[in-house]
Design a binder for these strands. Sequence first.
DNA 1: CGACACTTTGAATTATTTCAAGAGTGGTGG
DNA 2: CCACCACTCTTGAAATAATTCAAAGTGTCG
Lengths: 227, 227
Amino acid sequence: MALDTAALHPRAVESASCPSLHDGDLFAGCPELIGSPSTFARDEEIYGEDEDAEFVYKVMTGAVRTYKILGDGRRQITGFHLPGDLFGFEPGEVRGHTAEAICDTRVVVFRRRQIERVAAARAEVAVQLWGLATRDLSQAQHHMLLLGRGSAQERVAAFLLAVGERLGSTGSVALPMTRRDIADYLGLTLETVSRTISQLEGAGALVRAGARQVTLRRGRMRRLTEE
Amino acid sequence: MALDTAALHPRAVESASCPSLHDGDLFAGCPELIGSPSTFARDEEIYGEDEDAEFVYKVMTGAVRTYKILGDGRRQITGFHLPGDLFGFEPGEVRGHTAEAICDTRVVVFRRRQIERVAAARAEVAVQLWGLATRDLSQAQHHMLLLGRGSAQERVAAFLLAVGERLGSTGSVALPMTRRDIADYLGLTLETVSRTISQLEGAGALVRAGARQVTLRRGRMRRLTEE
DNA sequence: CGACACTTTGAATTATTTCAAGAGTGGTGG
DNA sequence: CCACCACTCTTGAAATAATTCAAAGTGTCG
């Protein structure tokens, strides 16, 4: 389900992120769907573009990036996948993305065919998968707004708020990804991300404690994106 | 299902756009799902952000834009919907977008609850809806690549090729949308879109016959996006 | 402790935007 | 049928946000 960067508020109230079931529990009621645990080291590839799309993954611990690459090396990260998220669904038989572990990561692996078989047999499972895809789509559309119309500051602020929402039980967030990863997710350069974080710190919207550890002042941060 | 801007080639061969069933036929085998025809005039609103998401629509003729708006008026069009496309699915009960007819448009309207009821009862319908959402998501991710990493020229070229694919049986394409619509879809300004189209014409990648009528030289156009 | 990878900051460059005029185009009514 | 009006589109010149190139700083791990 990836990151919901719903922090750049479209006009009015944003739809509060789904209160109940997190992707994860989806296969709980399916004893016929058993995933095998697997681990990937930092920067290890989980699957590559153009490979056969045989598996679907659920993140248990760690973090995953999925991205597309252009011929000259430009990279667009289309999603960060954090604990609880499912990733690896494709419309065809072939991977449209590459997936890599951002840090040491534990996942559970499901056979795509198996999921499809269960979905074809049990409507309520298919409906849930539909809902999952629809939510992912909705987030993707929100990210389009950010990429197409957000300033660097809005993009970075929205990103930090979204990660904070997912990873920061307290105010403090440990970012698993590098500046380059963030940049490639937000359609910026790593220098711009770095500069923007410095500005945000200057504006009192966050405090850095080492590059990967930030404490958010959510109120001020939001105010910066809203005007 | 909207536009597939798969023209900015990620590394290798792009997945040839789904050969068989176009969204449309989805409800053909569902006599219990009857849609009512309806028409909308140019620029008429079909639904608005924050409204109750009661209906789903299928475009018969014309074209529709769905978009999000920021407080200060910046607009991001997340999809153009052309004949055959279904639009209006939402993850929650509330609209996250506004939808408007781009030109005089005929649609068929379905009750969302009715679709959900059928999906809950018939797994094969739910699976198809899942597939539809997954394809839309995949396209959205491709559009992210364009928005995050494409130059103005790449964005416009990819857009024109995609529209041409959908609307141009011949080489000639009649664009239903304005330069501003295109700009808001591609994350550019209308001036940049106009200038870029002029450049593309200068490079021999297209010929204009009035602003809304272009003839594509697909080969040259593609070559421009690939380097 | 030193090496390496990542991050920050600075200065110059550039793609795109912004602001500002014109030039087409299409529709309506005299 | 033509003229005019409104709207869209094109083009130009100046401004700007972000990028690129470059160097120094920070932290981490053997």
